[in-house]
């Protein structure tokens, strides 16, 4: 058995295989649902209804997709340059911490000034957090997968420390939570009475900017070259270490912007459960989007719909909402397999 590159890729294959991948993931989920003693059709219908079935549901899905667009972009940018940033979770919290440190009354500025300042500060926080592992990679040859993963644990403990110490809200009834950000530091709602906020628009803009960097700038070209073959890029005169460092700054900044958006647009303060794994789910989003910046938007909405829908479904159908995590993870695996088969065909001899 061996793999043989396909000489031509028909549109049918390029679209058909990814769809088949989602179908296989759905079948697997259906099997698990049946094990729970529920009817998969009812469950899928409930998931669809809970995520897209009403105006409220759609808004809720888009709200949930917002942080995932940011962390998905962060992963996509890094993975394109083969910088394996698995630390999106820590960078996300870094952005949230910066927002809370500066946004709870320290800077007496009007909203049009304060919001950009907070955004920049948040991005800086996340950028620094990924810059360190990137330096360790280029200087000492330390595998960034392990360091960024370990940083997640370290930074979450730091957040816990801050929330029980300097950032603790004295009025928080003893809960480890920060003070609410001041009104000037809040992103307004997009629609009155619903939770969707301007962070969503910011996320779309971020995707557009990343697309622009990727396609229209020298840096984007260099990032792709490094990702494709770092040694060849080096040989062609591309400063690989510098490109990796810049990729790290952009990727870390994007994930952190997600943390800013979640605090300033939705939650208002920082708690230890601000992110239910947005950093890790961002990796899935990026892979489902085939690392395409604009595809990240669609993938994030899809993943968010699964999560929002499964939450609603589990309340009424009695299937554990962890089914959403299973669906998303199996979709990741079937999708990367499908993409491989659009490029190669299997020969049995």
């Amino acid at each position: 058995m061996r793999l043989e590159p396909r000489s031509e890729r028909s549109l049918l294959l390029t679209l058909g295989f990814p769809l088949l991948a989602l179908l296989v993931a759905a079948l697997f989920a259906a099997l698990l649902v049946m094990l729970a003693g529920a009817n998969p059709f009812t469950v899928f219908a409930l998931i669809l209804k809970g995520s897209l079935g009403s105006r409220f549901a759609v808004m809720e899905t888009l709200t949930r997709a917002t942080p995932l667009i940011f962390t998905g972009l962060a992963a996509a940018v890094a993975f394109r340059a083969k910088l394996w940033n698995i630390g999106g979770e820590a960078q996300f919290y870094a952005g949230a911490v910066m927002t809370v440190v500066l946004g709870t009354g320290l800077l007496p500025l009007p909203a049009p000034v304060l919001l950009p300042v907070l955004m920049l500060a948040a991005m800086l926080g996340g950028a620094v957090l990924l810059y360190a592992p990137a330096l360790m990679k280029t200087r000492f040859g330390v595998d960034e997968v392990v360091t960024t993963l370990l940083f997640n644990f370290i930074f979450l403990l730091l957040v816990s420390l801050l929330l029980e110490g300097p950032l603790k809200d004295p009025m928080g009834l003893g809960w480890p939570q920060s003070k609410k950000v001041v009104e000037a530091a809040q992103l307004p709602r997009l629609v009155k009475g619903l939770r969707l906020h301007w962070g969503f628009v910011l996320a779309l803009a971020a995707a557009a900017v990343v697309w622009f960097i990727d396609r229209k700038t020298v840096l984007g070209y260099e990032m792709r070259a490094v990702g494709h073959n770092a040694r060849a890029a080096q040989f062609a005169g591309i400063p690989v270490a510098r490109v990796i460092a810049r990729t790290a700054l952009i990727s870390g900044g994007l994930a952190a912007l997600g943390g800013f958006s979640e605090v300033a647009g939705l939650k208002g303060n920082l708690t230890l459960d601000l992110s239910p794994g947005f950093g890790y789910t961002g990796i899935v989003v990026a892979m489902l989007a085939l690392l395409h910046p604009l595809g990240v938007i669609a993938a994030a909405i899809f993943v968010a719909a699964v999560f929002v829908g499964a939450d609603a479904m589990s309340r009424s159908a009695g299937v554990p909402s962890y089914i959403a995590h299973v669906m998303v993870a199996s979709a990741l695996l079937t999708m990367v397999t499908a993409v491989m088969f659009t490029r190669y065909r299997l020969r049995w001899r």
């Binding site: 993975f79 394996w84 990796i283 899935v284 892979m287 554990p320 995590h325 299973v326 998303v328 990367v336």
Partner: peptide, 28 residues
């Protein structure tokens, strides 16, 4: 191995799938 997928991405995928399956069956 035979399909040659990215070991990083697949590994992370396995971690997400395996742990979510454990949690799913625990809740079940």
């Amino acid at each position: 191995v035979p399909l040659g997928l990215s070991q990083h991405v697949t590994g992370i995928g396995i971690t997400l799938l395996a742990s979510s399956l454990a949690y799913y069956f625990y809740r079940l």
